[in-house]
Structures are given as structure tokens and as C-alpha cells.
């Protein structure tokens, strides 16, 4: 079992490094937010791996918190990057689509 845990942890570590590279080179803020999202999923997998290796369920509430708040960053970055924080304008788009 410990071999498997080590191997899986190594894979997750390499994945984290690759995602950090993507986060560093960008090129836009949306690329970085996608990489951050995947890094959050990798973190959840890592905490799960720790729970499996130590055979304790102490860390499971941490998983719950991570999965609940992980998307807030991506949503706010997307809101910022789309350039329009005006809900009324987006509804307007929708209406124009309907008229056409």
C-alpha cells in the first residue's frame, strides 16, 4: 500500500508543478484561474490520499470545505475578466437574441 501511496503522491506532485508552470506563464488571467481550479482538485485528491495513507478520517471535513469554496475564485475572476459586471446589460443581450 505504501508503494501505491508514494507513487500516487508523486504523480499529484508532478501535476501540481505543471499547473504552477501554467499559472506562471499565463498568458491571461483566465488561464491562471483554470490552472488554479485544477490545482484545487489536485489538492483535494492529495488530502484524500493522506486520509487513505494514515487511515484516519480526521481530514475529511477539510475536503468538504475545499470542495465548497474552491470555485469562488474562478467565478470572481471570470466576473472580472468578462469586463461586464452589469447584470442588466447581460439580460439585454438575451432579449436582443430573442428579438432576432
Amino acid at each position: 500500500m505504501s508503494v501505491v501511496i508514494t507513487l500516487a503522491a508523486a504523480m499529484l506532485g508532478v501535476a501540481g508543478v505543471l499547473l504552477l508552470v501554467r499559472m506562471t506563464v499565463g498568458p491571461t488571467i483566465l488561464d491562471r484561474s483554470v490552472a488554479l481550479d485544477v490545482l484545487m482538485a489536485v489538492t483535494i485528491c492529495g488530502v484524500g490520499l493522506h486520509a487513505a495513507s494514515s487511515d484516519s478520517s480526521v481530514a475529511l471535513p477539510l475536503l468538504l470545505a475545499l470542495s465548497m469554496v474552491g470555485f469562488v475564485g474562478a467565478v470572481s475572476i471570470a466576473r472580472y475578466a468578462s469586463g461586464s459586471d452589469d447584470v442588466a446589460a447581460e439580460d439585454d443581450d438575451d432579449q436582443r437574441g430573442a428579438e432576432r
Partner: peptide, 10 residues
Amino acid sequence: FALVAAIGVL
């Protein structure tokens, strides 16, 4: 799968 996804993101 996580590793392949990271390769894909890169």
C-alpha cells in the same frame, strides 16, 4: 487522471 489533466492544461 490528475497528472494527464495537468499535462493537458500545460
